[in-house]
């Protein structure tokens, strides 16, 4: 009997540790991107506003990944000798989009308009964290239903608890 309890306790602890190890080191919260793009340099050191690149955030449901043209707009001149920039240039020459790995991924049944949130004055940081200090982008919010709801509750969104406000 005592042995059983011991096994159960050890098993439980191992499970919890395993969960955290997996969550911290093996999850896809901060996937490796095809190009080692640093938000820290762009948004942090150089103070480029978010919507300079993510141009659709205020206008559309999606914020939009900047196209290669927008990258090249600056990088035809700036730091052209860096190997990472040369990778961007090679995509530009091949006329191919950069296969960025999506970090903030919502399931198909969720209706999330960036437009409504940006226009309501929600700061990008609220959901995406302090991007300006991230060398590689990392998912900071769970994007679970309760997480959305707690913000809707806090901000007293009109019909913010109506299921079909967010589901589709």
């Amino acid at each position: 009997m005592k042995k059983l309890i011991l096994y159960a306790v050890v098993g439980g602890i191992a499970f919890v540790i395993g969960y955290f190890v997996n969550d911290q080191f093996f999850s896809d919260r901060a996937p490796v991107q095809p190009i080692n793009f640093s938000h820290k340099i762009h948004a942090g050191d150089n103070q480029i506003p978010c919507q300079y690149c993510h141009i659709y955030a205020e206008r559309s449901r999606v914020s939009g990944v900047p196209n290669v043209k927008r990258c090249m707009g600056c990088h035809q001149i700036i730091k052209t000798d860096s190997p990472e920039i040369q990778k961007v240039a090679s995509y530009w020459d091949k006329k191919e989009p950069i296969p960025w790995v999506k970090v903030y991924n919502l399931p198909d049944h969720v209706y999330f308009p960036h437009k409504r949130h940006v226009r309501a004055g929600v700061d990008c940081k609220n959901c995406h964290g302090d991007v300006a200090s991230m060398a590689r982008i990392e998912k900071v919010s769970s994007l679970q239903m309760g997480w959305c709801l707690s913000c809707h509750t806090k901000r007293e969104v009109k019909n913010g608890h109506d299921c079909w406000t967010c589901h589709k």
């Binding site: 049944h109 019909n159 079909w164 589901h167």
Partner: peptide
């Protein structure tokens, strides 16, 4: 499980993934 309910617009709503 509240998969169907009534909303503020007087609609009878079905939440599929619930």
């Amino acid at each position: 499980v509240y998969a169907t309910y009534h909303n503020q617009d007087g609609l009878n709503v079905q939440v599929y993934n619930r």
